[in-house]
Structures are given as C-alpha cells and as structure tokens.
Computed example of a mutant assay.
Amino acid sequence: MELEESRIIIVVITTILTILGVVFLVVLFTVFQNRKNKLLLERAENKKRYEREIAETQIEIREETLRNISWELHDNIGQLLTLARIQLQHASPESMGEISEIIAKSLTEVRALSKIINPDFINNVKLKKALELEIARFNRLNYIEASLEVIGRELEINQKHGIIIFRILQEFFSNTIKHSKATKLEVFLNYKDDSVEIKAQDNGVGFDVVRIGLKGIGLQNIKARAKLINAEAKFKSEPQKGTSLIINYYI
C-alpha cells in the first residue's frame, strides 16, 4: 500500500515538474520570440529611417546646389560677363587680351557649374572630391579663406554614408559663412586604419556652449544623422575663439 502511494506521489511530482518545465519552455520561447520580433521591427524601422534620411539628404544637397548655382550665376558669372560687356563697349586692340581672358574665365565657371548640376555627379562623387570642390568654390567666390588638408591614404567610404557626412559638413559651412563672421575655414580629412576623422573649424565669433546650447545650430539633427552611419559628431566652441565640428566615422 505504501509502495503504491509512493509511486502515485512520484508520478504526481513528475507530472507537475514536467508541466512546469513545459510552461517554462513556452514562456522562455515566447519571451525569446517577442524579443526577436522586437529586434526585427527595430531593424526594419532603422532601415526605413536610414533610407528616408538618405533621400532627404540627397534632396537637401540638390537644393543647396541649386542655391549655390543661383549665387554663382549672379555674383560670379554675371559680374564677369557684365564686365566683359562694358569693356567691349570701350574695346581697343590693347584691351582685347583682357576681355578674352574674362570670357575664358566665364566659360570655365559655366563648365564647372554644368558638371555640378549633373545628378549622377551629385549622387556619385566621393567625399574627398566633394570637399575639394566645395572648398575651391568658397575661395573662388571669395566667401571665406578656406583650406582642405588630407592626411593618410584615402579609404573607400560607403557612398550613401559619404553623402550624409558631406551634408553634415555643408550645414556647418553654411553656418560659418552666414553667422560666424569668420574669415578662415579649415577642414582636415584624416584617414586612419579603420576610421576617418573629419574636422572643420572656423575663427569666427564662437559662442558659449553651456549658456546658449547647441540646438540652434542643429547639433541634435547632426548627431542623429551621424548615429545612423555609425559615426560620432561633436561641437567645440568658445566666444571669440571660433567653432569646430569633429566627425569620427568608423568603417
């Protein structure tokens, strides 16, 4: 009788343990599946946000390019052609060489603009080349004294990531030219073993980071964009000591 009761108890305990084990496994599987689904959903959302950011950045670059073209047509090419027209009205054999030089310069500027307008060029140009063209444009139009220093051997950067980095830098350049009252802009492109450091700095009025904060110059947007491409972005600034933006991009 006691033996039979012991067997019953063992069976009951075994059944309970089996049920608890099954319940535990079901709960564990459910938790794992929920986490997996959540992770997949986050990845899908991050991919959508990334693709949306790429599209928006490309649109912004095109809009910025069109604004630049408008400025160049008015402030540079327009003035060159106006000068050539005035000189033609009072032309003499001695001045023909100078007039020819002005017209040749105008043609060079038009060719440069036509190259930048090309959508394939905008979408496919490498970061280093894009920065070279931007710096050259600033100097050509006398917006600011600008320079680009490249350090190390050039590394291959994901094209879409390069577009976002370039747009981040464009925002900084725009703020420098419009608001900083700077006379000098320096850009350093430093290629390392597995990363690229891009530093842009001006000698403008700067600002108190603690007192003013950084939202007004879009740092949050810049940081969010940098994060999408596995990069870090940070500002440094002091009153009357200029402002700098440092981007660390990990390949």
Score class of each variant (00 low, 15 high):
18 T>V: 11
39 L>A: 15
68 N>S: 13
12 V>W: 03
125 V>C: 08
33 Q>F: 14
212 I>Y: 12
185 L>N: 01
173 F>P: 00
133 L>Q: 08
24 F>T: 12
104 A>N: 10
236 K>W: 12
19 I>E: 02
172 F>T: 03
244 S>W: 02
229 I>W: 03
58 Q>P: 05
98 E>F: 11
46 N>S: 15
234 K>P: 05
235 F>M: 09
220 Q>I: 07
105 K>I: 05
152 G>P: 01
129 K>L: 04
172 F>K: 02
237 S>I: 07
204 G>M: 02
33 Q>T: 14
163 I>D: 05
166 F>E: 12
90 H>V: 09
237 S>V: 10
96 M>V: 09
23 V>R: 01
23 V>S: 08
81 L>S: 04
50 Y>G: 09
167 R>E: 13
141 L>M: 12
134 E>G: 00
87 Q>L: 13
16 I>F: 04
23 V>K: 04
74 H>L: 09
20 L>N: 05
192 K>D: 08
24 F>V: 06
29 F>T: 14
64 E>T: 14
62 R>C: 11
162 G>F: 02
27 V>A: 10
79 Q>H: 09
42 E>L: 13
148 L>W: 00
196 V>E: 04
61 I>H: 07
146 A>Q: 00
62 R>N: 14
96 M>R: 09
4 E>L: 13
98 E>I: 08
67 R>H: 09
26 V>E: 05
27 V>Y: 13
132 E>G: 01
52 R>A: 13
224 A>K: 15
60 E>H: 10
70 S>Y: 11
48 K>M: 14
217 I>T: 03
16 I>H: 03
163 I>F: 10
60 E>G: 11
181 K>A: 00
234 K>Y: 09
178 K>D: 07
234 K>E: 15
15 T>S: 12
57 T>I: 04
179 H>S: 02
134 E>T: 07
105 K>C: 00
69 I>A: 06
27 V>Q: 13
92 S>Q: 06
69 I>Q: 05
60 E>C: 03
28 L>G: 15
179 H>G: 01
47 K>T: 14
98 E>C: 01
168 I>W: 02
228 L>G: 06
212 I>G: 05
191 Y>D: 03
148 L>M: 01
157 I>C: 03
114 S>V: 07
23 V>Y: 07
34 N>Q: 12
10 I>D: 15
119 P>N: 04
75 D>M: 04
14 T>S: 14
165 I>D: 02
194 D>S: 12
61 I>Q: 12
26 V>D: 01
173 F>W: 00
159 Q>L: 11
13 I>D: 06
20 L>K: 01
186 E>N: 06
27 V>K: 09
142 N>V: 00
114 S>W: 05
23 V>L: 12
191 Y>G: 01
226 A>N: 05
117 I>Q: 06
91 A>P: 02
111 R>T: 08
205 V>N: 06
69 I>M: 10
34 N>F: 14
161 H>Y: 08
20 L>V: 10
163 I>N: 08
192 K>P: 05
221 N>H: 08
238 E>Y: 11
161 H>V: 02
169 L>C: 06
149 E>A: 03
208 D>H: 08
90 H>S: 13
244 S>Q: 08
73 L>M: 09
110 V>F: 08
248 N>A: 03
80 L>H: 06
89 Q>E: 15
230 N>A: 11
81 L>P: 03
44 A>D: 15
14 T>I: 07
142 N>A: 00
236 K>N: 15
68 N>F: 05
128 K>Y: 00
108 T>Q: 13
100 S>T: 08
196 V>Q: 01
108 T>C: 07
97 G>V: 10
